[in-house]
Design a binder for these strands. Structure first.
Length: 220
DNA sequence: GCCCAGGGGGCTC
DNA sequence: GAGCCCCATGGG
């Protein structure tokens, strides 16, 4: 399995090259992006972030003090804006309460400790927690999303019905714990899924993984 | 008009 | 624990 996961990575990287995900220098912006991107295309998140930035709402203090309705207005492109406005507020309140308002206090924690704290926050589930750990805290925590399930199910490497934590544990056991590697791998999986593992189209013509991807030959 | 995007919470059984 | 609904924009 180790060889399968790592060789798949190498082939994806060779096919698509580095993806440069979340290069933003500001951890808070990455955290906000991780919450806003839930079930939403990234381009919509960029609009929301820009709006927040222009309104000077890109700080934990500002998010905590601004009315929820006003916060929601700026993040409308991210669909569930009322819910997400509450999520951003809950996050800022958590940091204020548990880390004296200092985000670095959370991001400096050991991976599993940080993960437990993140999961306590309403609105942050497994995937968002791992995204924050990986991209904002720069610590190795493999992100499992629906694309990951789809791609590796088609490759026959997983069943697809495994629980989130089971897959995360598997990937982290088989893949060396390296931040850049986890970052790049997840981005490559998403890119590949968008190109070839389309939701309602099991056929992936020209798929770079076609030697192992059953979607090509069987048409399933 | 229809589909679907880098999910999570809450409820039911 | 699985299965379902809710949330509710915008681009192709």
């Amino acid at each position: 399995m180790t060889q399968d996961l790592m060789s798949t990575y190498r082939r994806l990287l060779a096919s698509y090259g580095p993806q440069h995900w979340w290069p933003g220098p500001d951890p808070l912006e990455i955290v906000i992006g991780a919450i806003l991107t839930q079930a939403v295309a990234w381009r919509n998140v960029e609009k929301a972030i820009t709006s927040l930035k222009q309104a000077r709402l890109l700080s934990l203090e500002a998010i905590a003090s601004v009315p929820t309705e006003e916060l929601a207005r700026h993040i409308r492109p991210t669909i569930y804006y009322n819910q997400k406005a509450r999520k951003l507020k809950d996050f800022s309140m958590f940091i204020k309460r548990e880390h004296q308002g200092n985000l670095d206090g959370l991001l400096a924690l050991p991976v599993e400790t940080m993960r437990r704290q993140l999961l306590q926050i309403r609105g942050i589930g497994d995937e968002t927690a791992d995204s924050i750990i990986l991209y904002a805290a720069n610590k190795p925590s493999f992100v499992i999303d629906s694309y990951t399930r789809r791609v590796f199910k088609r490759l026959g490497l997983i069943d697809g019905s495994e629980h989130y934590l089971a897959l995360r544990t598997l990937f982290m056991k088989e893949i060396p714990r390296d931040v850049k590697l986890y970052n790049e791998y997840h981005a490559l999986i998403v890119h590949h899924a968008k190109e070839y593992c389309l939701l309602n189209s099991p056929i992936c013509l020209g798929c770079p993984l076609e030697q192992t991807c059953p979607g090509v030959s069987t048409g399933r």
